[in-house]
Design a protein around this nucleic acid. Structure first.
Lengths: 338, 338
DNA sequence: CTGAAAGCGCTTACAG
DNA sequence: CTGAAAGCGCTTACAG
């Protein structure tokens, strides 16, 4: 495949390279017939602009970075996929950059990505969306960036989130509506700010119903399946066990469900189990787990849209760069009347 | 962050840009004291070469592409992670490109990636590693590429695989060793060449033990959890059900396990269930599923190594670009004596 | 509406 | 061992 350049196209179309450039970038000020002629030659020659030449001469790289703590999780996969598809629609490419905050050299890696890749923008996934030191790196370098589900506001950052608190409150209210009064909570890890918001929602719903929270039935997990197993055992292997358990993500809910199974507790007849995320693990169970549908892929796609938007790139964070996406309560087999 | 260029470094170090270039690329023919001086300035100025300028002037992009059918699967996540970490060690970046062979424009997307990104190499995951039309695209463009777990040999392609047939045979022999004689098989989809190899291994082990395969207990799934549920029901909801089921991946094995649960069949007391992959779903079950550990991340990392190796880049496929990585039988709770 | 000139920040030959 | 020149393939001002 001999490389076709903009000059080849220009020569064949009988115009200057600049005109070809205008056409392929969809700029104005080109006569329609010339535009068409150029487009025809582009198609004939199967011309593709060299992304590096373009990036070197312009200030844009057409590259977005996805910075993520644990690229292997199911959560990461959904986020990445949403971002990937939208990038493709927008003719951007996505580079995934793992960030391990517990490694001493993490800043070097991030700086290297920013400097050598000249990223046009960055998407920062939880929980590192709350790492001020990380955000500062992007701010210092003037790299537009959007945070996924951050805890607070950051002046120069875009943000896409869902109503974690409201969703957890709905779930809790739903369980209360089923007649449950003694509800256990498996919290998420402190490192994830969503954990606190979900717990707040739980407590709000309990308070609204006038039900006292059994603090002995509030246990902290780390969002892993294993921690769900362990907390589930602590919660269920006792005489005054709760009639329902709300785990702050699906992996932990699955752990609780499986613990119930081991202990011979029938779900949902003797125990209701609820999760959060609508991840694959909520469906790969029996009964399937009642959960909150979190719009992960949509959030990532929205982040891409914000980054690609010229107005965000120019003047940073306006209201249209602060989005809240809708969630949904998904009732399945793991919950039932008390 | 004012951009530091090679000229800035050169000026400050009192040498020419070319010398700086030699130092940062680790080339020979630089006096040690000059090398050190340059390195000191690089560190002081926090200089990072502009990847685009480098790529434009050289023929290398330091970019590897991971071409994958379904980037959301757990399999994809493991492969990607393995490739990502190794890329980082080698100072390469990874671009993930979804390829949907059932969309008419898939070739355009691949061509566009190859042409505009000037990929230094491509990793092609299953099942599309067996799509000849796709491989041809890379061959035509002279893009070095490594196939993960392909069915056959391709003259210009590197390949990293595991012994699917041997592993399936081991698993089957293990089940036979437990006393099982009536063993059901849930095959993988025809689109994945690994399915056929695993089935071969199953049949080889049965033949070696002199046991006839019950063809009514050989059903085809599509590697999805759902298909495991369905085939599980077809296999187990009858009087002459097998005493063991070998599903050709873990997602399907989990489906079979859950079906057993629904039907009130005790695992492993009344039924043994075995999977393949050692994916997260094999552990997120109770009992945990006996499976074959597939070195997914290692295979991807090895693919990166092959692509980065100058000898592969120059003269393509030698024997060191054809690897077979070891697997392991992982015995867990889902299998027991017949 | 169109184009000639200059330059983005590197590396590739080529000298010395 | 070191450097001056030219060029990679585009786009950015700037003219006209």
């Amino acid at each position: 495949m001999s490389t076709v350049t903009i000059k080849d196209v220009a020569a064949r179309a009988g115009v200057s390279p600049k005109t070809v450039s205008r056409v392929i970038n969809g700029e104005d000020h080109v006569r329609p017939e010339i535009r068409e002629a150029v487009q025809r030659v582009v198609a004939e020659l199967n011309y593709r602009p060299n992304a590096f030449a373009r990036s070197l001469s312009s200030s844009r790289s057409y590259l977005l970075g996805l910075f993520i703590d644990d690229p292997v999780s199911g959560y990461a996969a959904d986020v990445q996929h949403g971002a990937l598809l939208r990038c493709r629609e927008r003719s951007y490419h996505l580079v995934v950059e793992p960030v391990e905050l517990n490694r001493p050299d993490w800043k070097d890696h991030v700086r290297a990505s920013i400097a050598s890749l000249r990223l046009d923008g960055a998407i920062i996934a939880p929980p590192i969306c709350d790492a001020a030191e990380l955000i500062d790196l992007f701010r210092e370098s003037d790299v537009p960036h959007v945070l996924i589900a951050p805890s607070g506001e950051s002046p120069d950052s875009g943000a896409v989130r869902m109503d974690d608190r409201g969703a957890a409150r709905e779930m809790t209210a739903y369980l209360i509506g089923l007649g449950h009064r003694h509800i256990g909570l498996v919290q998420g890890p402190l490192s994830h700010s969503a954990s606190a918001r979900r717990e707040e929602g739980f407590r709000a719903a309990m308070a609204e119903a006038g039900i006292a929270v059994d603090e002995d039935a509030v246990l902290r997990g780390d969002f892993s399946f294993r921690s769900g197993l362990e907390r589930g055992e602590a919660l269920l292997d006792r005489t005054d066990r709760p009639s329902a358990v709300f785990a702050c993500n699906d992996d932990m809910a699955l752990g609780v469900l499986i613990t119930a199974m081991k202990l011979g507790i029938a779900v949902p007849q003797s125990l209701s189990v609820a999760g959060f995320d609508d991840s694959a693990s909520s469906r790969a169970a029996w009964p399937q787990i009642t959960t909150i549908r979190q719009p992960k892929a949509e959030m990532a796609a929205a982040a891409v849209d914000i980054l690609v938007d010229p107005s965000f790139r120019k003047k940073s964070a306006g209201p249209q760069s602060r989005l809240m996406l809708p969630h949904a309560l998904v009732v399945r087999g793991s919950t039932g009347a008390a």
